[in-house]
């Protein structure tokens, strides 16, 4: 059983618009407090992605200009690596822009950018407002005995449509979700999770942070408990903000 969680962040200098480093910090601290090692690496523009170099891959959101650069790079340099990593069961968390880029394609202005095709989804633009606001979804994950609430904030212009092979991450309790209409949010394929929820997501949903850590380390037994009084209060606040 490995005693170090190896996390690889994709384009951490470019894809970090919604304080994505908060998600990485959550993972780091929650490992450290349990005596689990934590090693963070980065995969930047121009570098191929080594599928065996990490247990958990993270990709956040970026400004349109940066996201365009990353979309092209990801399709060219990292497509194979990402597929290989997912196929061997590595964990991934893709948030907002990163979520969009894992699909088949992504519309930006008049341009259709290629995705890496890891997930069966497409993101399109429509004439309509950005979908912005607090959001809460209900999620069922393997290994968790009951459905859990994931609460956060969404802010996206794109509408993401899941294909027949894709399974949503959760059911929208409050907020817009993938396309503002279908009642579903995010996507999950095995240990790969894509979601529009930022805020960052993990500080106010530490149960998901722990699920990701356990899956990435291949642990069946639950992680040792931590004093999560403040985290529980932050989760309650985020739910209240969403109206759940």
């Amino acid at each position: 059983m490995p005693d170090t969680l190896r996390v690889c962040a994709l384009y951490p200098q470019l894809m970090n618009i919604y304080a994505d480093r908060g998600n990485l910090l959550l993972l780091r601290r929650r490992c450290e407090w349990r005596g689990i090692g934590f090693a963070l690496s980065a995969s930047d523009l121009g570098a191929p992605l080594d599928p065996d170099a990490a247990d958990l891959f993270y990709v956040g959101g970026g400004q349109d200009r940066d996201q365009r650069l990353c979309a092209l790079d990801m399709a060219e340099c990292k497509r194979e690596g990402l597929h290989a990593a997912a196929d061997r069961g590595a964990s991934m968390l893709a948030v907002c822009g990163g979520y969009q880029l894992l699909g088949h394609s992504y519309e930006l202005g008049d341009e259709t950018l290629p995705g890496v095709g890891l997930l069966d989804l497409r993101t399109v633009r429509v004439d309509g407002p950005r979908l912005i606001g607090n959001v809460a979804i209900e999620v069922e994950l393997p290994g968790l005995e009951r459905p859990r609430v994931l609460a956060g904030f969404e802010n996206h212009g794109g509408r993401t449509h899941l294909g027949p092979a894709a399974q949503p991450l959760g059911r929208v309790l409050r907020g817009h979700g993938n396309d503002g209409a279908g009642g579903f949010e995010g996507v999950r394929r095995g240990n790969v999770i894509g979601t529009y929820l930022h805020g960052p997501l993990l500080p106010k949903n530490v149960w998901l942070a722990d699920w990701l850590i356990a899956r990435a380390l291949g642990r069946d037994a639950p992680l040792s408990p931590l004093d999560d009084a403040l985290e529980a209060a932050a989760h309650a606040e985020a739910r209240r903000a969403a109206g759940v």
């Binding site: 908060g22 910090l25 959550l26 601290r29 500080p203 106010k204 004093d227 009084a229 403040l230 985290e231 209060a233 932050a234 309650a236 606040e237 985020a238 903000a241």
Partner: peptide
């Protein structure tokens, strides 16, 4: 504030001892 606990969590993960944080 309306998001007092979010800020408390931020401070905790920034390295402020939880015993020094009141919500």
């Amino acid at each position: 504030g309306t998001r007092a606990a979010e800020l408390a969590v931020r401070l905790k993960y920034a390295g402020v001892e939880p015993a020094r944080i009141a919500v």
